[in-house]
Every structure is written in C-alpha cells, then in structure tokens.
C-alpha cells in the first residue's frame, strides 16, 4: 500500500495528492502536523527524512523524499500509458527534468513568501522572496505564451500534461498567500485554468476549482 506522509496545507504534499488522484491510486495519508506541531522536525520524523521535509512516500520497500522525485517514481511505476513522464524521447525527458527543477525553485521563493506571511517564518527576507518569484513567473509566463503560439497547452510539448506541470502548479496557485499577485501573468493564468480541467484534478485549501466554462 502506498503511504504518503502528508500535511493538508503543504503545496509540496499537494503535488503528490494530485499525481495520486490523476493516476486514480489508493493510498494512506499519514498526517504530519507541520503547524503548529512542527512534527516534521520531530525525532520520529527525522528518522524517516533526515532533512525534516514533507512529503515522503513509502511504497513496499521504497521510502522516497522530495516531491519531484516522488512524481517521477509514481509516473514511471503506475502510469501504464506512459503519459506523465515519457522516457522514450531524451529531449523531452531533459526538458521535464529542467522544469521539475524549476518547480523546486518556485518552492524556494513563492512557498517561502507564503510561510513568511502565513506562518511567521520571519527569517525569510520577504521582499527578496517575492522578487525571485516574480522573476520566475515572468520566465514561465513567457514560455507558456510561446507554447500557446505553437498550439501547445502544457509546459512540455505534447497533447497531455506531464509531471512538470504538476511540479509547477501548487506554489503558483498559492502565490497570493505570500503577497505575489498573478495579475501580470496572463499565460500562466490560462495554463492554470487548463490544468484545473484535467480529469482527476482535486483542490486543496487555498486552491479553487475551475469556474464554469465561458461561451
């Protein structure tokens, strides 16, 4: 049975919940109270992940940390159609890895800003976090705009979304909680709307479902 060490308000855990839902997989959510309990820094949890970070996935003999690594594993292991993380095309795989990494950069900026504003992580320089997030959002917005010009809906080329889209979505969708407006990123907003219409999409607190389609 797949077990996910999980915290409801974590965007990185949400990446995994999304993947599990898209793949229609059953799993057990093992709650780790990030706030106010700081359970992710408890001795018990540090034995599972010495970095003291969520999420962690356990599946039979494997214990895996890092949201991006877990996405790769779940996609390769359970996506029989080979859609979410195709490996037959080296160029595409390279690009997926590039954007997975980018997703982690967004965690370092947008998620840090959210932690500052919401949970009082005052050690972060909020102005600097927001500036970095905006620089990253501009890069992704431009990329998505040019993708659209080529009739591409997703971060990496192809008919279907990949784990790169999943890795980037949560902390963009939660950015306003860190005072980072998405007003200036129309291509990102359109991409978010498409993402929310993927079969199996689920929400988390702070993320809303797509509105009714306009005509």
């Amino acid at each position: 049975m797949i077990e996910l060490y999980d915290y409801e308000l974590s965007g990185n855990c949400y990446k995994i919940r999304l993947m599990l839902s898209f793949l229609k997989l059953d799993y057990v959510s093992k709650k780790v109270e990030f706030h106010p309990g700081k359970e992710h820094k408890s001795e018990k949890f540090l034995e599972i992940n010495p970095l003291g970070q969520l999420p962690v996935l356990s599946d039979t003999n494997l214990v895996l940390r890092d949201a991006q690594a877990i996405l790769v594993y779940l996609a390769r292991k359970y996506d029989k159609k080979n859609i979410w993380c195709p490996i037959d095309d080296p160029e595409k795989l390279g690009l997926i890895a590039q954007w997975l990494s980018f997703g982690d950069l967004i965690t370092g900026s947008s998620s840090a800003a959210r932690l500052h504003d919401t949970l009082f992580y005052t050690e972060f320089d909020i102005g600097e976090c927001r500036e970095r997030a905006h620089a990253q959002f501009r890069i992704l917005d431009e990329h998505l705009f040019f993708q659209e010009q080529l009739n591409q809906s997703w971060i990496c080329d192809g008919e279907k979304p990949t784990i790169a889209d999943i890795a980037c979505f949560p902390y963009i969708a939660l950015s306003e909680e860190g005072g980072i407006s998405r007003m200036s990123y129309p291509a990102i907003r359109r991409w978010m709307d498409r993402f929310k219409r993927i079969d199996g999409f689920i929400v988390m607190p702070g993320v809303f479902p797509a509105g009714p389609r306009s005509f």
Partner: peptide, 21 residues
C-alpha cells in the same frame, strides 16, 4: 487534539484566499 486542529486548519485554509481578495 491533532485531528481537531487538522479539521479547523482545512476550514481556515479555505477561508484565507477569500479574505485576502
């Protein structure tokens, strides 16, 4: 207490974006 906190955090997490907008 932890289950109670989780329940309430989910609710408050849903309210937050509404408040901030």
């Amino acid at each position: 207490a932890e289950q109670i906190r989780q329940f309430q955090q989910t609710i408050f997490g849903q309210d937050k974006p509404i408040l901030e907008n």
